[in-house]
Design a protein around this nucleic acid. Structure first.
Length: 718
DNA sequence: AGCACGCCGACT
DNA sequence: GTCGGCGTGCTC
């Protein structure tokens, strides 16, 4: 027999190995094979008696690694689809999808999943010194069987103590009991939520749902109950969430709703070994719920019963390098493949999903009411900055609102999506502006550190004393970042406690959490921050949100900018008045007449989505057309452009597909590389796929010196 | 991606 | 005389 093996190499083919022992049952197994002059880990994607590679140079397979159950045919199909759709070599799809630890040839030791419990709690406690606080806490924890992970959560030293108790006979091990989900519900649901849960529960087979719920409408409760139904049938749930921020909170919501259920985490901050262990639990069907970021869409789940994608519009579901996949789209594909329902939730759905709901491919479930009784939606007002002299970047009315809130001892949030002191350093004499040498971008002034920094590549230099262009010593900062607003607010309100939260103030581990604690503990009056604060965090004492400088997204070259801006504004607005205080949102803008703001004030996402879709239809953009981008980058723009010209010449002629001229990327120079791209568009996805597949093979033959290129299917950013 | 083979410049 | 630059080609 011969094994057809894919490897983690950028080659769009599989390799044959002589493997007399293998059978079809070994498809999906990890193997060790000689490749070039060293051994590598590969994955068997086929077994046959006849090799495809007609050569005497076929080598023998070195070893079959049996520490992992073979990947199921469904997962292999997902990989193949992903490879074809995103024009990426199968081997590299497989090895981006597998946890890093499984790419290592070292066998992965799989421990039995024990739980640990105390035999005679009282006797042990009687023995413990009164001041051994940790041991007392552990003792009370272990009255119930607990997993190693739960024990380690208590403190770094906890596991060591349990091992000692185990040796001394205090603790016994219990094998993992099959999970039973308690039938009683978590929180009581309102009528809308119940209706949504019932609709989902009624589905047998594939059905995508778009759960459209305003901030605070309790989408999470709907996920939880829909999942509870699935768990009762002994099946698994896959939950995808955007990157890091939300996960710990959602994690505790889930853990609280499903005590004793094996819930497993699969995001990048989980350590390698644990990630692999969790992945294996999913593969064996032991993990009832898999909660993770985009990579989790590849988790093997033999008993999959439902998929949930929370904040489905979030851009972090799209990978921006390597295999440029959309986890949300793959999740829908997977739900279809496995014939299970999928719930896509958002207060501001992507226009793609909204359109799919309109044309009946998805079923929309609406939550209009805030789930907490009596909670009011925020009151959004526009503050026109046209023909008004701003004071330190803020409108006089905003200043007076701020001072009123402070006198009432209410918290306020000033949201500026721009860190640093000011985004431009400008010479009034000659017009010079500080620019990054490595990027097509201005340097941001960081006044407290007296540095100029590039926010794209991280370049850093001293603030010049005089203008390098004309020698003028009077350089001034233009525009307002978080640092500058923080300074202005502190000097205007010397008694207020101002806290700035952005990437610069939260660089250290745990500092973001301690900032949140300070806010919750009422130790902060004015919060100044970037979008870090926009997502998912509840600030019950916050009564006013001020949004500064939102306009950049309105007239951007990127047609998705408005959509992103709207989602972000809804998200920050949701920070105001979550509890009993009704919140106000003031949006400072030069374009108060823009329809985006009209929809925002009316809190009418459907209106926004409808006019955006109408624009897209006229312009021939997604979701009415499908797109791909061929990106190239090189040290010199000409090299990238020349490659793209050559590529254009090689492009097959497929009717119904338009290939546009090469253009430099909007941020042409980034970290010393100059970038350009070609846009490819078609109303027909098969036609587009067809072209890309044949084109790609000829692209690989172009000799590319000092140049990197990549195809990006369904691009999100330009 | 690695890694080897291969043909032209400055150095212990 | 060699060490080493990275261009080209191959990996079952």
């Amino acid at each position: 027999m011969y094994a057809n093996v894919v490897l983690d190499v950028p080659l769009a083919k599989a390799f044959d190995y002589h493997a007399p022992e293998l059978t079809h049952a070994d498809i999906g197994r990890r193997v060790l094979v000689p490749f070039g002059n060293k051994l590598r880990v590969g994955l068997v994607v086929g077994v046959s008696s006849q090799p495809e590679y007609a050569s005497e140079r076929i080598k023998a397979l070195s070893a079959v690694l049996t520490d992992m159950p073979p990947l199921g045919e469904d997962l292999l199909q997902l990989f193949r689809f992903c490879s074809n759709y995103y024009q990426h070599p199968l081997g590299q799809v497989v090895f981006t999808a597998l946890p890093g630890r499984l790419r290592d040839p070292k066998p992965f030791a799989t421990r039995e999943r024990w739980r640990y419990q105390l035999q005679s709690v009282q006797a042990l406690i009687a023995q413990l010194p009164a001041r051994a606080i940790l041991q007392h806490r552990l003792a009370s924890l272990l009255t119930e069987p607990r997993s190693e992970a739960e024990i380690r959560q208590i403190s770094p030293g906890a596991w060591k103590i349990v091992r000692e108790w185990l040796a001394a006979g205090w603790v016994t091990t219990v094998t993992e009991a099959p999970v039973s989900v308690s039938a009683e519900a978590g929180k009581p649901l309102n009528a809308e939520q119940q209706a949504a849960v019932a609709e989902i529960a009624a589905i047998r087979g594939f059905q995508p749902f778009l759960l459209f719920g305003i901030t605070g409408s309790g989408k999470t409760e709907v996920y939880l109950e829909a999942i509870a139904n699935v768990l009762r049938q002994g099946r698994q749930a896959l939950v995808l969430v955007p990157e890091i921020n939300l996960t710990p909170q959602l994690q505790s919501r889930f853990a609280g709703r499903f005590p004793g259920v094996n819930l497993v985490n699969l995001h990048s901050s989980v350590a390698d070994a644990e990630r692999a262990a969790n992945w294996l639990q999913a593969a064996r069907g032991e993990a009832a719920i898999v909660l993770g970021t985009r990579l989790s869409v590849f988790a093997p789940m033999p008993k999959l019963g439902i998929i949930v994608v929370d904040e489905e519009h979030d851009s972090s579901f799209k990978q921006q390098d390597g295999l440029r996949y959309s986890a949300r789209d793959l999740a829908v594909w997977r739900a279809h493949q496995r014939q299970v329902p999928i719930v896509l939730g958002s207060a501001t759905p992507s226009l793609e999903s909204w359109y799919n709901a309109q044309n009946g491919r998805y079923r929309r479930l609406d939550l209009h009411q805030r789930a907490v009784a009596g909670a009011q939606p925020p009151n959004v007002r526009l503050i026109s900055t046209k023909h008004v002299e701003l004071q330190d970047g803020l409108h006089p009315f905003v200043w007076s609102e701020l001072s009123e809130r402070l006198s009432r001892r209410e918290q306020v949030l000033v949201f500026v999506n721009r860190r640093g002191y000011s985004p431009v350093l400008f010479c009034g004499e000659c017009g010079w502006m500080a620019a990054c040498t490595q990027c097509t971008a201005r340097m941001t002034v960081h006044l407290s550190e007296r540095r100029l920094r590039c926010h794209y590549c991280g370049a850093d230099s001293a603030i010049p004393r005089a203008c390098p262009g004309c020698g003028n010593a009077d350089l001034h900062p233009l525009g307002h970042g978080t640092q500058r607003l923080e300074a202005a607010l502190s000097s205007r309100f010397p008694h207020a406690r101002v806290l700035r939260v952005d990437r610069d103030t939260t660089r250290q581990k745990g500092s973001f959490e301690s900032a949140l604690d300070a806010v919750h503990g009422g130790k902060v009056d004015i919060l100044v921050g970037t979008q870090m604060l926009a997502k998912g965090h509840d600030f019950p004492r916050l009564s006013l949100v001020v949004v500064v400088n939102a306009d950049a997204g309105l007239y951007s070259a990127d047609y998705r900018a408005a959509e992103r801006l709207y989602a972000q504004l809804v998200q920050v607005s949701g920070r105001a008045g979550r509890a009993q205080i009704s919140g106000d949102v003031l949006v400072q803008t030069d374009f108060a007449e823009h329809p985006l703001y009209a929809a925002l004030v009316a809190q009418d996402f459907p209106a926004f989505a409808d006019f955006q879709l109408a624009d897209r239809r006229v312009a021939g953009f997604p979701p009415f057309r499908h797109q791909a981008v061929l990106r190239a980058e090189a040290a010199k723009l000409e090299i990238a452009m020349q490659f793209l010209q050559e590529a254009t010449a090689l492009a097959p002629d497929v009717s119904g597909v338009t290939i546009y001229d090469p253009v430099p990327a909007s941020l042409t120079r980034l970290a010393g590389m100059e970038r350009a791209h070609i846009l490819i568009q078609s109303a027909s996805r098969p036609a587009l796929q067809n072209l890309l597949t044949t084109w790609q093979t000829s692209l690989r033959d172009i000799k590319t010196r000092q140049l990197r290129w990549a195809l990006d299917v369904d691009p999100q950013e330009f």
